[in-house]
Amino acid sequence: MPSETPQAEVGPTGCPHRSGPHSAKGSLEKGSPEDKEAKEPLWIRPDAPSRCTWQLGRPASESPHHHTAPAKSPKILPDILKKIGDTPMVRINKIGKKFGLKCELLAKCEFFNAGGSVKDRISLRMIEDAERDGTLKPGDTIIEPTSGNTGIGLALAAAVRGYRCIIVMPEKMSSEKVDVLRALGAEIVRTPTNARFDSPESHVGVAWRLKNEIPNSHILDQYRNASNPLAHYDTTADEILQQCDGKLDMLVASVGTGGTITGIARKLKEKCPGCRIIGVDPEGSILAEPEELNQTEQTTYEVEGIGYDFIPTVLDRTVVDKWFKSNDEEAFTFARMLIAQEGLLCGGSAGSTVAVAVKAAQELQEGQRCVVILPDSVRNYMTKFLSDRWMLQKGFLKEEDLTEKKPWWWHLRVQELGLSAPLTVLPTITCGHTIEILREKGFDQAPVVDEAGVILGMVTLGNMLSSLLAGKVQPSDQVGKVIYKQFKQIRLTDTLGRLSHILEMDHFALVV
């Protein structure tokens, strides 16, 4: 994948999101292997301009796509893939009243899908469409860049269908997702969380590099694949309309690839034109409109599966009536509230959605109805927002919020430890010299600072030695090549209790 991002070429006709291997024109390309080798690009942008032909009021008969309808489940399912879809609609009884809503608040519980998330729908649909058009064949390999849930859905379907599955996901995604993927037989590649989507090191860039190296491999490409919004247009939206008897006044959905909100909203605009569509985008993402909503100094966020630093091709923002931004604290607070007060075992993005819903639905009156999409299960986040310690460490809970008995030293300040200034190293000294210094002084790690004293990161003896043994660096290389740029900081005025929580999850903390 090139470091400079080429513009994806656009073909003359058809839909841009065809499933299957992508040609340089962004659509299915038939021909000899030699032709494909000559024409197939190194990668295709996940934010390529959409060429979708959908228009409100256009006859369904003019759609270029294969459409399906929700099917009634048999008493005995032939395999677990038949437990994807037909998820329950559940009334939220307490939270709406707590925040003064007059309307009825309903939750579409997508964590009841077989793999635990709304992404099971698009995973199965992308595979079925690729099999139907002859792209996927027995023994082929599926590769997908994902925040985890699409990966789980694909790995689940691949396990049943017999495909090899490789999932490329950023490091910030939970260990629970990784464990589930491994249990399903998927191979996992992790990428830096802070890598831009168009960087060769991003999950998108690495996935395309693997595709170019592995024979008979395919990126189904949830960011561009029409099967993504079509899955929701054909099934999720129809289920909502049936469950609500066609009567709903507002739908609120958090947005990642945009397939969920695009597919549902398009069908609702056709069948229930008075329904307002509300999009939820986390602070630090750029999906919301108008652009002024996205202006923030924050560039990272903890909530998973929603928000991006690019506009995915499948996201149709014209069908969203209003956007709201959400933050991590309210997302996790509301997710825990949904679990504790409503018994809905949902993930953090569901918290984002409901946090926005109780604001947006203030305009609705008694007798009206708001539906929220709860995308995934708490299963993926047992060591994250479900953990009091994690919430404390991230600053989303305060010590006084917890009532468990603490040891005698818990409320003492870090400054009472009488710490001395640490050994520091410059980023320009060599790895070999740094190892000598650390061994001589008896230290395992040291902060790396520039000549102005600005902290650049941390270097550890173990990481340097393993990097040297693996051949990633040489003793003569500058130590700046092996620094940890993500590390926890703590102030002298913070409590030892807070430091204790940090050290339970990290090997060190830097006192500043």
Rank of each mutant, 00 (worst) to 15 (best):
R161M: 08
R161D: 05
L101C: 02
K98R: 03
L124C: 08
H218S: 02
P200V: 09
V252S: 07
L81M: 10
C165R: 00
G134I: 02
T5G: 09
E213F: 11
R164Y: 12
F111P: 03
T150P: 03
G26T: 08
M126N: 00
R190Y: 06
M173H: 06
G205K: 07
R190C: 01
R182P: 05
T150Y: 02
T260C: 11
M169P: 02
R161K: 14
K137C: 02
D86Y: 11
T68L: 09
I143V: 04
V204M: 09
M169Q: 04
A114I: 02
I166E: 04
L28C: 09
I95M: 12
G151Y: 00
G115E: 07
P273R: 08
K30N: 11
K172F: 01
M126D: 06
R132S: 11
L268G: 00
P200M: 15
S32V: 09
C275Q: 04
P74N: 11
V90Y: 02
P59M: 09
M89S: 00
D249S: 06
I76S: 09
P200Y: 14
K97V: 07
R91T: 10
V118S: 07
I188F: 06
S50L: 07
L248M: 15
A253E: 08
I80M: 14
L77H: 03
I84Y: 09
R164Q: 04
E37M: 03
D120G: 05
A130V: 08
D249F: 01
T13W: 01
R161I: 08
D179M: 01
I142D: 00
I240D: 00
D234M: 12
R58G: 06
A265F: 01
A226L: 04
L210N: 04
I44P: 10
G153M: 00
F111N: 04
E171Q: 09
S23V: 04
L181W: 02
M126R: 06
D198P: 06
L124A: 11
I143L: 07
K30S: 03
E171F: 03
D140E: 10
G96V: 09
Q55N: 15
G205T: 08
V255F: 02
I214F: 07
P192I: 06
T5D: 02
E29T: 12
A253L: 12
V206I: 14
N216A: 06
A130C: 07
L101A: 03
N149L: 01
